[in-house]
């Protein structure tokens, strides 16, 4: 599968019988989708009262994401544009109700009735014009507008997305805000090329304390299991900028010039290009830096 299936064909063509089966029999994909769905459900921040909710799974596919909702005790309605994916969902006897539909045409649901919505690896598909009649901006508008209406006030929608570039993320986010949503993007493991995951966390209703966007995992260097065996990734996981100020100062002092000389020597021995040691090395900078 290409890195960006949405560039190859429209979803209902790309996810044909054979691709749908391939997708759903890969244990790697099953595992990843389950983890993404768990995290999306967590970001949905439903009240912890054990009451099963009525949720939407948009672009539910063969039901991998929906299964996580079932495991957590919720009822769900899944929407997908690929009949082949839905056929596999039937085969797997998922517990949710399934609809064949195109989110870009808007959701055919009554207002104010849904307790929360998730969408895993699907919304970026809306950014492509697969038919001459498709205008991504209008399709995003129809989608977010109808989603906003059918959610109960205060309900959340969490989308894990793979935007192709910054412009695409902006486009999606702007469409959501236009529809009236508050919220933003949560990025888990932002410093890891492999584990980095983006979630759009949207709340229905005016901004308030509950609409504040939660923090991503691994933002301040918390390690991510997939990376633990790769030294390279662990290093980029730690970002000085995101570390609290106080901690930063202490570490600076603790390390000092000798530490820097030692580190540079090590790197030189590894054959890296390292700037020469001068009287400026490790010198304290003026405050204005």
């Amino acid at each position: 599968m290409s890195n960006r299936p949405e560039l190859l064909a429209p979803p209902e063509i790309f996810y044909d019988d054979s691709e749908a089966r391939k997708y759903t029999s890969s244990s790697r994909i099953i595992d990843i989708q389950a983890r993404l769905s768990e995290r999306a459900l967590e970001l949905l921040a439903l009240p912890v009262d054990g009451i099963p909710r009525l949720l939407l799974d948009i672009g539910c596919g063969s039901g991998l994401s929906g299964e996580t909702l079932t495991e957590n005790g919720h009822q769900w309605i899944g929407l997908d544009v690929s009949q082949s994916m839905l056929n596999i969902a039937l085969e797997r006897e998922v517990e949710g109700d399934l609809l064949l539909g195109d989110m870009g045409q808007g959701l055919a649901l009554r207002p104010g009735i849904i307790d929360g919505a998730i969408s895993i690896s699907a919304v970026q598909w809306l950014c492509n014009a697969d038919k001459s009649s498709h205008e991504p901006r209008l399709r995003l508008k129809a989608f977010f507008g109808s989603l906003y209406r059918c959610l109960a006030r205060g309900a959340r929608a969490v989308f894990q997305v793979y935007p192709e570039n910054i412009a695409q993320r902006e486009l999606i986010l702007r469409s959501a805000m236009h529809a009236g949503f508050a919220g933003g993007v949560v990025i888990d493991y932002p410093h890891s090329a492999k584990s980095r995951k983006e979630y759009l966390v949207l709340t229905c209703g005016p901004p308030s304390l509950s609409t504040a966007v939660p923090r991503g995992k691994g933002e301040d260097g918390e390690s991510c299991s997939e990376d633990e065996n790769s030294e390279e990734n662990q290093m980029v996981c730690i970002s000085d900028r995101n570390r609290p100020k106080k901690k930063q100062k202490i570490t600076r002092k603790g390390k000092g010039r000798d530490w820097i000389f030692k580190k540079k020597e090590q790197l030189r021995r590894k054959g890296n290009a390292v700037p020469p040691d001068t009287r400026y090395t490790g010198r304290k900078r003026k405050a204005r830096f």
Binding site: L54, Q75, I77, D97, L99, Q105, G106, L107, A108, L109, R110, I113, I114, S146, C150
Partner: peptide, 9 residues
Amino acid sequence: FTHNMLSSN
């Protein structure tokens, strides 16, 4: 429950 939520758009 799904029928009760669906509305022609």
